[in-house]
């Protein structure tokens, strides 16, 4: 293992991998390798200690029971908190996104979150299932978010975080805003392989994780066609 490798940790795939979440790790690794950046991907099961000092941590979606278990084990482990304090990047999706906040609801009860982002989640009136599109915070310099959501929660942002996007189709946090970010931490309800439709977001995470101000462009023509197709599909 070389310290020059980009180290990507996928947190608890045994608990939080319900909707193709592996895709985000595969996409980040492929896009780094395509730029000649050596990558090490590490899948950490929930009965293992979380390695510290990795550059990028991924948390996926999952069912209620595993989500509550993941929160308990991550809080007990403490490794993610130390990594964040050292400036590591975190990208979290769906149940994983809710985990980053102060509390969330699962199995009808409130559970403490990881307290890494100023937000909390509760139950919504209905399950949010379908296309999720939005205009991303202009400070991030990204094209619109394109994704698919499937969650029963609603998320309320405190003053310490910014919404990732303003919703144009779907529900996201609450029908208006979607996702959240602060510093190197970013969460979204665009679930599963969210980066497959958002290659520019993948590159933003890679720039954060490597410190590179610029990454040479890749051939994203299929992802572009997919984005256009989904955009057309949600137009009234």
């Amino acid at each position: 293992m070389s310290t020059e490798d980009l180290r990507i940790v996928w947190i608890y795939p045994d608990l939080l991998s319900t909707y193709g979440d592996r895709g985000n790790m595969l996409i980040l690794a492929a896009r780094a390798q395509a730029r000649g950046i050596p990558v090490e991907t590490i899948e950490v099961r929930s009965d293992q200690r979380l390695p510290e000092g990795a550059d990028l941590y991924l948390i996926g979606g999952g069912e209620d029971g595993p989500q509550a278990l993941a929160a308990q084990r991550l809080n007990a482990d403490g490794g993610l908190h130390r990594a964040v304090a050292q400036g590591s990047v975190v990208f979290a999706v769906c149940a994983g996104y809710q985990l980053l906040g102060t509390s969330f609801f699962a199995k009808g009860a409130q559970f403490p979150g990881l307290n890494l982002l100023d937000l909390h989640s509760d139950r919504g009136p209905s399950r949010a299932v379908g296309e999720l599109h939005g205009v991303i915070d202009p400070r991030l310099g990204l094209p619109p978010l394109s994704g698919f959501e499937n969650h029963g929660g609603r998320t309320h942002l405190g003053p310490g975080v910014s919404p990732l996007a303003q919703v144009t189709t779907g529900i996201g946090n609450d029908g208006t805003s979607e996702g959240a970010w602060r510093g190197n931490l970013l969460g979204t309800y665009s679930h599963g392989p969210a980066l497959s439709r958002n290659p520019a977001l993948a590159d933003l995470l890679l720039r954060w994780a490597t410190g590179a101000g610029y990454l040479p462009p890749l051939d994203d023509s299929w992802a572009e066609r997919l984005r256009q197709e989904r955009q057309l599909a949600v137009q009234p």
Binding site: Y19, G20, R22, G23, G130, F148, H191, G192, P193
Partner: peptide, 9 residues
Amino acid sequence: GLDTSWLFD
């Protein structure tokens, strides 16, 4: 099912 995320599984 309307979701294609499973392709990455």
